[in-house]
Design a protein around this nucleic acid. Structure first.
Lengths: 220, 220
DNA sequence: GCATGTTAAGTGACAATGTCACTGAACCCC
DNA sequence: GGGGTTCAGTGACATTGTCACTTAACATGC
């Protein structure tokens, strides 16, 4: 069904045919349905994880029931947080959740080690993945510590909408994106509505004035 | 002055003598005074950085003038954020600041690459360093997004004091540790003072009741 | 259709934190 | 010991978080 997944990743596509053939033998292909927990506190992986298709949302939960999204893993990327936690063997309360149906490549630790040692391209790929996530997290820290909620929400609405004008999501889900409470999201969305930047109905938000949202997202 | 720095790092102490001798030739030893900026937005490093002696505080600044401490690099650790940013070649506004006089080992990227490729021990060391920092940042996100300020402050006071009872720091510096405003720190410290958990004088805080502080740090 | 249960969203009061403009106190240096 | 500088205290107010609740929309079974 997947002819040759090594095509898909920057870190593997450039490798010699022989190495790729070996990888195809060593790795398992795993499919999971939308909504499945890919990894989590009760589910620490012992292998390396490369996302072939779909999208994973990595979030952190507090004991008080609030969540915050740390970053998303897209197709073609590796999920280094699993790697990190595997290597550090430390507890953590981050969770990876399949946001769509996903197909992933699971590479045993041993094969991963050999690849990192032997193949510079792959090594670059892995380090770049780590760096990317570190920088993602720096951004999250910056937002949470210093950002204003209306700005962050406007930004997130635009991101979630992409090229479309409508988002299917609840206030609670948006709150979990940003690490805040539902009531706060409701308040701000009401304000946006009053200003005719958006229209709302149960479970849906229509972005009426993306330009205004962009301005809000860029301010302060 | 430094006989053989390769003794000092987990990633290098276990290497064969020949490799370590080569490293001693390839790396430079750098000393910086307390207060110096080790790296920063205007000062992106092009080499790898291992801290031989001293301590570095890595913090992030907002445009509004507030700061937050992300983590500290202690002697024997590497500073992977520089690595990350070097590799990602992305802008970032984190800053490394020498908290004491420091002595560091600066390894050219090429030598680093070779070492990662050839030496498993070193590779483990580097990955562990990355993982550690990722997890440090997860902790920061958790604290900032979900933690209460009094709890975080109590915790930080205990950490900064270590085994001692007195801390020499200003309210402003504490605020910069936690990513909040000086006034907030002042308010909470006044409360601590009223409860006789601490005593204050200009530039100094005396921890009178560490047990109470520990309880506060553990609560909520 | 309609009753009923469930989930989503709205509301008001209050607490915690962030921001601003200012005052007062401690220290430093000549 | 006067004058400047840094540190800390203060009150007013804005934003955000928390709580307890109400109201509205949808889903389901009858």
């Amino acid at each position: 069904m997947i002819a040759d997944w090594t095509e898909r990743f920057q870190g593997t596509a450039a490798l010699p045919r022989s190495v790729r053939d070996r990888l195809l033998k060593e790795a398992r292909i795993v499919e999971m349905p939308k909504g499945a927990q890919v990894f989590g506190p009760a589910n620490v992986p012992d292998s390396l994880f490369f996302l072939y298709d779909g999208r994973i949302r990595v979030s952190q939960s507090s004991d008080t029931g609030r969540d915050i999204v740390l970053y998303r893993v897209d197709a073609g990327e590796s999920c280094v947080l699993t790697t990190a936690c595997m290597l550090a063997e430390e507890a953590y309360n981050a969770e990876g959740m399949a946001e769509t149906d996903i197909t992933a490549i699971v590479l045993p630790k041993l094969a991963f080690d050999r690849l990192v040692a032997e193949e510079e391209e792959f090594r670059k790929f892995v380090f770049a993945a780590y760096s990317r996530r570190l920088i993602d997290l720096l951004r999250v820290v910056d937002d949470v510590a210093f950002g204003h909620m209306d700005v962050r929400l406007a930004e997130r609405l635009l991101t979630l909408a992409g090229e479309f004008k409508e988002i299917s999501t609840t206030h609670q889900q948006l709150a979990s994106e940003l690490g805040t409470a539902r009531e706060v999201v409701s308040r701000i969305l009401q304000d946006f509505q009053k200003r005719e930047m958006i229209a709302q109905s149960r479970g849906h938000i229509l972005l009426l004035d993306k330009q205004a949202l962009r301005e809000r997202a860029a301010s302060n």
